[in-house]
């Protein structure tokens, strides 16, 4: 069974080297100690109450041996850990900078040309990337297992991750600093594109959601967007309570707002709530949802609404 995730950055094989190194040292030490334990227990098993035992209290040679060898091993492990860490933290030249903002429970990415994405990070392959990250509320942590990179994200301060992706594809992002009830749903994806394709994406020429086939039914596209765009962090689809209202049975349900008025959750209401979530606040919920204006196009909003309609 595989014990390491896909390796998709220049840093990943270096981390894996350290992991293998320490694993080998650990397994050998464990076998040695486990073997001695069992061997001694069998060999020196008590035979009678009159067993004669030698009163050995120390042995300079052995004690030196088991001081020096662990010391050397520790130094070796430290050096490898340090050298690769140093390489990882050194700011690469001509790094392509992307700003990352964390907020309960969604990641927002701002690109140099003004483009903005939510819950999905797009990067070109084989180009050094530098993420400049900050938080709008509590601590979060940006973790991409396939890249072996992780960094806490803090309010009122910037923290950084450098990486160069080596594999094209889609990789998971986890939040790894506990941040509340939807912590484990604060997920995102990194899309690593070939450089040319990335440039096209950046300039808006290519279909940005390339994985969504054009012949997919709308509600299926909506289902995909639900997890890709971070809706999943706050809205359940099974009626479970969350930070935001569940989508189950939401369509056409009567909504009572904080100002006392009410309305049915029809198509237009749902679209308004996606674009201007602060306009009509439902009783019992706080103003925490970000506006998706500019982050979803009209076709995507329609797809999401179609998906909500299927959740009865």
């Amino acid at each position: 069974m595989n014990w390491l995730p896909t390796s998709a950055s220049t840093f990943a094989p270096e981390v894996d080297f350290v992991l293998w190194l320490v694993t080998i040292i650990s397994v050998v030490s464990c076998i040695l100690i486990g073997f001695l334990l069992i061997y001694f227990v069998i060999k020196y098993k008590k035979k009678s109450d009159n067993d004669q035992t030698p009163a050995i209290t120390h042995d300079s040679f052995l004690e030196t041996l088991w001081t020096v060898i662990p010391t050397i091993l520790c130094i070796v492990i430290f050096i490898y850990g340090y050298v690769y860490y140093d390489r990882y933290t050194t700011v690469p030249q001509n790094a392509y900078e992307i700003n990352v903002t964390a907020k309960k429970w969604i990641w927002t990415f701002d690109y140099p040309n003004g483009k903005k994405t939510l819950g999905e990070l797009y990067v070109p392959a084989n180009k050094p990337i530098r993420l400049v990250m900050t938080s709008e509320d509590v601590l979060h942590s940006f973790f991409v297992p396939a890249f072996r990179v992780k960094q806490d994200v803090i309010g009122n301060r910037y923290t950084f991750i450098n990486f160069t992706a080596t594999k094209e594809g889609e990789f998971k992002v986890y939040c790894t600093e506990y941040c509340g009830s939807s912590h484990s749903n604060m997920l995102a994806k990194v899309h690593v594109l070939p450089e040319l394709e990335y440039l096209k994406w950046e300039s808006g020429e290519s279909a940005k959601t390339s994985k969504i086939a054009s012949d997919m039914p709308l509600d299926q596209i909506g289902k995909q967007l639900y997890s890709d765009k971070g809706c999943v962090a706050c809205h359940s689809i099974d009626g479970a309570a969350g930070v935001g209202p569940s989508w189950k049975g939401l369509y056409n349900a009567k909504r009572i707002f904080t100002d006392g008025t009410s309305a049915a959750a029809d198509e237009n209401y749902l679209k308004e709530s996606i674009l201007y979530p602060g306009e009509k606040m439902v009783e019992g919920y706080g103003p925490v949802m970000p506006s998706y204006k500019g982050l979803l196009d009209d076709a995507e909003i329609t797809a999401l609404i179609e998906y909500i309609k299927t959740l009865k």
């Binding site: 840093f11 270096e14 981390v15 350290v18 992991l19 320490v22 650990s26 492990i77 430290f78 490898y80 850990g81 340090y82 050298v83 690769y84 860490y85 990882y88 297992p145 072996r148 990179v149 992780k150």
Partner: peptide, 10 residues
């Protein structure tokens, strides 16, 4: 593993 900087990042 956790004391080694590069491995701890992961």
């Amino acid at each position: 593993f956790l004391g080694a900087l590069a491995a701890d990042v992961h």
